[in-house]
């Protein structure tokens, strides 16, 4: 459903992604790991369509369409969801209001009717339960005054409501204590399904103890330098990123030479 080919991206004139390839099929969970500065968040943001990322070459194809040609809201309506590393606080806009707008935008673009108030509330309550959140939360402003953990939980809650086809989770595990991590992981696992692709962007393999990925990729120097299964994440945990970075540097030298 998602094919990234030879993607090169510059931010402020500096090359961050340098020929990245990735293939995600429906039903798969991929983990993208890598040291700080390796380009993990850049990848997540480019897929979601954030401004300020200059794609200098390569393609991103999503369900057979050129994703890069779509506005961020179009991508969302086609089923792409980004769980933010730093969810934004939006004073004065109630969570429930955003959810309704977002869900209706997605449904309308699929040619479905807007959910009536009863069905909407039913779905919302069900997902609140999944994420162990109180109903009063719906009427608070989006992320305003939330703790780091609450913000991350809210991202997964929104994802659960919107039921995307492709979910990119950018460092959703960072800043979570172990209990919150379990709740969030539980929410993610509930969304695993044969027609949905999930990409977990993470620095640590901690989350992967709870959400077991089908594929693990290691990003360094703006490229996928290693791909493997769950055991690659465990290896990284034991050996750190140093050996990968050396490996990447060797590769760059080899290419230059």
């Amino acid at each position: 459903m998602l094919t990234i080919h030879n993607l090169k991206v510059r931010v402020d004139g500096k090359t961050i992604l340098n020929g990245l390839d990735l293939e995600v099929r429906p039903g798969e969970v991929h983990a993208i790991m890598g040291p700080n500065g390796s380009g993990k968040s850049t990848l997540a943001n480019v897929i979601a369509g954030r401004d300020g990322y200059e794609v200098t070459s390569g393609t991103i194809t999503y369900q057979g369409r050129d994703l890069l040609g779509l506005a961020p809201e179009e991508r969302a309506r086609q089923g792409v969801f980004l769980a933010f590393q730093y969810p934004v606080e939006i004073p004065g806009v109630a969570n429930v209001y955003l959810l309704k707008e977002a869900l209706n935008a997605v449904r309308t673009s699929r040619g479905e009717s807007e959910l009536d108030a009863m069905d909407f509330l039913k779905r919302v309550r069900e997902k609140l339960q999944l994420l162990e959140m109180k109903e009063e939360f719906l009427y608070r402003s989006v992320n305003e005054g939330f703790s780091g953990g609450e913000k991350k939980r809210n991202e997964i809650f929104q994802m659960a409501i919107l039921e995307p086809k492709l979910a990119i989770l950018d460092e959703t595990d960072s800043g979570l204590d172990i209990d919150a991590l379990k709740v969030v992981a539980n929410g993610i696992n509930a969304l695993r399904s044969p027609d949905r692709g999930i990409v977990l962007v993470t620095h640590y393999q901690r989350l992967l103890d709870y959400v077991v990925p089908d594929h693990v990729h290691v990003l360094a120097g703006g490229q996928v330098v290693r791909s493997g299964n769950r055991s690659l994440a465990v290896e990284l945990e034991e050996r750190g990123y140093g050996w990968i970075e050396n490996h990447a540097a060797d590769a760059v030298r080899a290419e230059a030479g």
């Binding site: 809201e73 969302a76 933010f84 935008a105």
Partner: peptide, 19 residues
């Protein structure tokens, strides 16, 4: 904030209006 709302499927004009 505009990007956040757009990434949830809200059109840009509507996102500005909401904010």
């Amino acid at each position: 904030a505009i990007f956040y709302l757009r990434s949830r499927g809200v059109a840009e004009a509507e996102a500005r209006h909401m904010l």
